[in-house]
Write a protein that binds this DNA or RNA. Structure first.
Lengths: 208, 208
DNA sequence: GTCATTACAGCACAAGCGTGCGGTTTCCTA
DNA sequence: TAGGAAACCGCACGCTTGTGCTGTAATGAC
């Protein structure tokens, strides 16, 4: 092998630069996420930024993908204890909701990219994948509530009559995301949590 | 009174130009809604457009406001027959959802403006007004379902224990709007309608 | 030490943007 | 029929944008 310069991991650096993208979108919106501003926020030059992302489109694309990666990492951590019940389902779904600063930024970035690249067909796979992944989480949450086995892979439905409940929960989660992100004054984190809890409580069969 | 030229109603012309804004946002997104493109779509010059809107910001602002105006016009028309029940509530709420081409454009424009001007404090009143108006519609829908008197003014809660149902319905409506607008493939109009209907059916007390 | 290779800097360029502004057409009033 | 205001045009300006490109510093292999 030939000579290798600078001891910098390429992927780590990209992930680090994406944090700058998130910060800029959080403060200046997606239309303010220019290559210059991102480079300035990251402490590098535009040329330095371009060394890791050959286009602004690729930069924003990767920034959006990393939102999904971050959420999946949290979800996997939550799923590890293998607990069940409404509380476990609530904990799972809360990872997707803008309940603290970090998750609010992620929701803002995701919603911004979703609207900005709404007509871009090169985002179709990411859009579809995110939707399917979110649906999978909702199915898993419903399964946790009812104590039935969770779906094995993304795309698999939950057992029997529980599938409509997952679809409905999916709508509620998206509604809470939108309202929590866009109308934080009228819909603070505590109320988002309360509404999700009410939804899950209503899901399980009444104790008669 | 002095001389008056051209027989053109100022407000009508503004509303007409806003249609061009909607069409451009529908086809090119909010970042593609440049004054030049809107002017071209409307068949006027940039100077002619600027005669009615002295800034792009004011143009987009008015375009967003007209979305609310259009929705309110439809809602007032639906509310006139003074019917009640789940079907009436469904008809009311469907006016807010992207179920056909017109309403889909309105939802896209609204969501685009919502994310674009998320950090713009001059949009606070419009944001808050739209949220309160939507909540009012949800309260009215709940009142229709239960046969109780609808709230008189925006901001008034519905009677007694029905208020949480309105908040929950509001979340569902926003979730359906987001999914219907952004994930039209996975969430076609028929399914949006079905999910709304299921939500309203579950709202009313079970017939034992 | 030498050198290939990578990391990064920063200028240059064309394109597109919002907007200011002076000119032209049009039509009602007096 | 003259006058004047409104409707509309379109050029020009300054600015920002994404991106191509060349130059420079740094590092590890040989």
């Amino acid at each position: 092998m030939t000579g290798m310069p600078k001891v910098v991991d390429h992927d780590d650096r990209r992930a680090q630069l994406v944090r700058a993208v998130w910060a800029v979108i959080d403060r200046h919106g997606i239309e303010g996420a220019t290559v210059r501003r991102v480079a300035e926020r990251a402490g590098v030059s535009v040329g330095g930024l371009r060394h890791y992302f050959d286009s602004q489109h690729g930069l924003l694309r990767f920034a959006a993908e990393q939102v999904a990666v971050a959420a999946q990492a949290r979800l996997a951590r939550d799923l590890e204890p293998m607990s069940s019940g409404v509380v476990a389902a609530q904990g799972l779904l809360e990872e997707l909701l803008p309940l603290d600063a970090d998750r609010r930024v992620e929701a803002d970035v995701w919603l911004a990219c979703l609207t900005r690249f709404r007509l871009d067909s090169t985002w179709d796979d990411l859009r579809a994948g995110a939707w399917a992944g979110e649906r999978h989480i909702c199915r898993t949450a419903v399964a946790l509530c009812f104590g039935v086995p969770a779906p094995a892979a993304i795309g698999d439905p939950v057992s029997g009559e529980l599938e409509p409940l997952a679809a409905r929960l999916h709508v509620v989660v998206d509604g809470l995301t939108l309202q929590g992100a866009m109308f934080a004054d009228a819909m603070p984190a505590a109320q988002v949590r309360a509404l999700l809890r009410a939804e899950l409580d209503q899901l399980v069969p009444p104790p008669v």
